[in-house]
Design a protein around this nucleic acid. Structure first.
Lengths: 152, 152
DNA sequence: ACGCACAATGCATATTATTGCACGGCCCGA
DNA sequence: TCGGGCCGTGCAATAATATGCATTGTGCGT
């Protein structure tokens, strides 16, 4: 009955159901025994810092934790690189790829998944990825490939 | 002029400015040389998976990546290094800088921001930073510089 | 018990976002 | 060269969200 428990319920609903609008949420809450207006929900969501994320299937409310984790299913280098790419440079067998802040992790993962022969492994920080290549030559190849993909 | 570059610009704007509405974004884009309608932005934001997060100061658009780490303080190497420095060592073009626990991230960022020519890139973990230098020689230069700054 | 302060909420409305539809440009195959 | 399909976009209508203001309830000090 209290505001706090209502907000707790909201958290659970958001985590477990598809909530596309505050009106959706209102209905779910009614089934759970609460009856409040959309205004209240707007304020609740703000206090809970629950974000609204647009998706191909329409808007969805998500918790910040989910937001970080749910980067969708975009694991293709071709898809993710053009969005995050900043620059590429290197020395010896080492390639250093820079991305916009927060982009290193997803891009590193995508490169890993690509399974390129020239690449031995990757390490991603916040905005920098270290790519260890098989040779200096391989480094050039990969660098060029990355540049081409980034420009797509 | 292309959709992709526009979306790239959107990402940067979202990352660096306070964007509270699609109309805000429209204005910023116009200053950057694009002129599109709010409808288009609605679609762009969906494709970019940029979320709208309610805050006490009103709604804000944020990238999923940004959500986890909100650090607005610009930091100078001279400021953070003496505070966190532990040791520096290396081999070949690689420099390994150790800091006290938790210090790697801010220091790595500060070094990035410094924009030293000898440095190709940095990756920070919890208490260790890997610095990729342009050459073995460059590594020496940087190592000495770091030591000097750390002692200040 | 009274009255004040303040949190919580609803109501009405302002502000924002989404979307159906249509149109123009482009690329491709015949 | 001529369609045909498709992508990107604007426009306008619709849907959804945020908020100013009023009201109610609750606790507290006197």
């Amino acid at each position: 009955m209290t505001k706090r428990s209502r907000q707790q319920t909201i958290r659970e609903l958001i985590a477990n159901k598809v909530v596309g609008s505050q009106e959706d949420l209102r209905v779910l809450l009614r089934e759970a025994g609460w009856d409040v207006t959309q205004s209240t929900l707007s304020r609740d969501l703000r206090e809970l810092r629950i974000a609204r994320l647009p998706t191909p299937e329409g808007p969805r409310y998500v918790t910040p934790e989910t937001l970080g984790a749910d980067n969708g299913d975009r694991t293709l280098v071709e898809e993710v690189l053009p969005q995050f790419f900043s620059s590429v440079d290197g020395v010896g067998e080492l390639l250093v790829l820079k991305t916009i802040y927060g982009g290193a992790q997803p891009v590193a993962e995508a490169i890993d998944d690509a399974g390129w022969d020239e690449v031995i492994g990757t390490i991603g920080g916040e905005n920098t990825i270290l790519i260890v290549c098989r040779s200096s030559n391989a480094r050039e190849t990969v660098a060029n490939r990355l540049r081409r993909i980034a420009d797509a």
